Computed example of a mutant assay.
Amino acid sequence: MKIYTLKFPIETETATIETLVLRRPRVRDVATIEALKDRPQAEMTIELIAVLTGLTSEVIGEMDLEDMVAVSELITDFLAGLPGPAAGDPLPPMSQPSSASDIPN
């Protein structure tokens, strides 16, 4: 289990989420990654973060990009030691925007 403190808390209708608790991935989570390979990277990352935190993909979709990059790196660290197809870099790290103008409004 890893705990990540969001730099930019997620505001929902009922709560402010300031930390994410990510459990260790299970075999079925690796299968989820494999099933999402043809989807856009951001969609795959959102879904996996949702699965590992127990939050909905809609809530995760509201996460700040900087936090999403950091959390995707935590997940990659989790998966790096796994044998087989999940080894290596199963979840490519999200790229950081090079400037504020690269961040969509």
Rank of each mutant, 00 (worst) to 15 (best):
I49A: 03
E13N: 12
L36C: 12
S72K: 03
Q41Y: 06
E34I: 03
K2D: 11
A87F: 03
T19N: 07
M63R: 09
A50K: 02
G54L: 03
M94Y: 04
F78T: 08
R24C: 10
T14N: 13
Q41S: 09
A31E: 08
Q41A: 02
K7Y: 02
E62K: 15
D77A: 05
S57L: 03
I46V: 13
G84M: 04
Y4D: 00
A100K: 13
L82R: 01
G81R: 14
T14V: 14
S72Y: 04
Q96R: 15
A70H: 11
R24T: 05
L82D: 00
A35E: 08
S99H: 05
E11P: 12
S101H: 14
S99F: 07
A86S: 12
S101K: 15
E58M: 05
S72R: 00
G84W: 12
L48T: 01
L20G: 05
R24F: 10
I10L: 01
T12P: 04
G88V: 02
I17M: 02
E11T: 15
P9L: 00
I46L: 07
G81A: 14
V51K: 14
P85H: 00
V69D: 00
E47K: 08
Q41W: 13
D102W: 10
A87Q: 00
L82W: 11
P97S: 06
I49C: 08
D64A: 12
T53A: 03
I60A: 00
I17R: 01
P25G: 12
D89I: 05
D102Y: 12
P25M: 13
T56C: 05
S98K: 11
T53I: 03
P85E: 02
S101A: 15
M1V: 14
V30C: 07
I75D: 05
T5S: 10
L82V: 10
E43H: 14
Y4H: 12
P104S: 09
L91K: 08
P90I: 01
I46W: 06
A80W: 01
V59L: 03
T56G: 03
G61M: 10
E43A: 14
T16Y: 09
P104A: 10
A42C: 04
I75E: 10
A70T: 13
Q96M: 15
